[in-house]
Design a protein around this nucleic acid. Sequence first.
DNA 1: TCTAAATTAATTGTACACAATTAAACATTG
DNA 2: CAATGTTTAATTGTGTACAATTAATTTAGA
Lengths: 150, 150
Amino acid sequence: MNNERQPATPNPLLQLENQLCFPLYALSRMITKAYQPLLQELDLTYPQYLVFMLLWEHQELTVKELGEKLLLDSGTLTPLLKRLEQKQWITRRRDPRDERSVIIGLLPAGQALQERACRIPESIAARLNMSKADFETLRRQLNTLLTQLA
Amino acid sequence: MNNERQPATPNPLLQLENQLCFPLYALSRMITKAYQPLLQELDLTYPQYLVFMLLWEHQELTVKELGEKLLLDSGTLTPLLKRLEQKQWITRRRDPRDERSVIIGLLPAGQALQERACRIPESIAARLNMSKADFETLRRQLNTLLTQLA
DNA sequence: TCTAAATTAATTGTACACAATTAAACATTG
DNA sequence: CAATGTTTAATTGTGTACAATTAATTTAGA
């Protein structure tokens, strides 16, 4: 395109490359996209993979707990979990001691996915051309910002 | 929940807190959420705001150029841009020199949004408890990773 | 030139993401 | 114990995201 005409007031604060938000937003999507071919082999989406990472560690979690850990609400989780239930990878049942809560549990097929997922983290790490130290520093910095906003 | 039962093979590589992807994914959403109340006053969503940041700078861009800069495809941009067109904030027209291309232009009402958006970046920066140096370092690191993956 | 290949948007279908509302179950308090 | 308020999921509606396909146009090659 012709970019001859310049804006009346070029405001560097309103330029994409000077923001933190944009590279964060774009990088998040690019990383998700990098997982996609690996997750496709397991018939998983990226948010579904995150749910399983938690279930593989804890076996059982309520929707509320999943939401707290993933910072997602029931409007996102409920349909996602129903899809996983339909595939017979997880169970959804009300907590008999508190009928408001829904407990999500792992079925054997869901548990079995873990073995196949084992290589994914290293495979992604290899793609990121970073030293282990840089990786750790960045991870901690992002987590600090995250707790600051959440 | 009862987390008494432990997994057969607790794999630290498959734990959320050891990933880079998760804080990136969550932080990206949290930052978008931090923009939301500010953008709501302008009747804008976050991706729409990104489109306007580019249009305020360049006046006119094709859908292809917007997609390259934002790393978004036409399946995302076309409906988003049609909504902005309906609000009379932008124009969409075919390039007469290449009828395949669609040129997006700013209408006065869309241009006028810029003045109201001016305070948003500082307002967000104030929320992030970071030094200017840390901000810059992080921004550059994210951009490096971004170009590495894109 | 005429056709095959490439480019560009749009469309279609699936899956998040989240605000707002609803409804059921539980807790609290007078 | 009854009324009120709180917690928890589910539902509804809007708006991204993106893979895959389609259609129109342009470009390049024989």
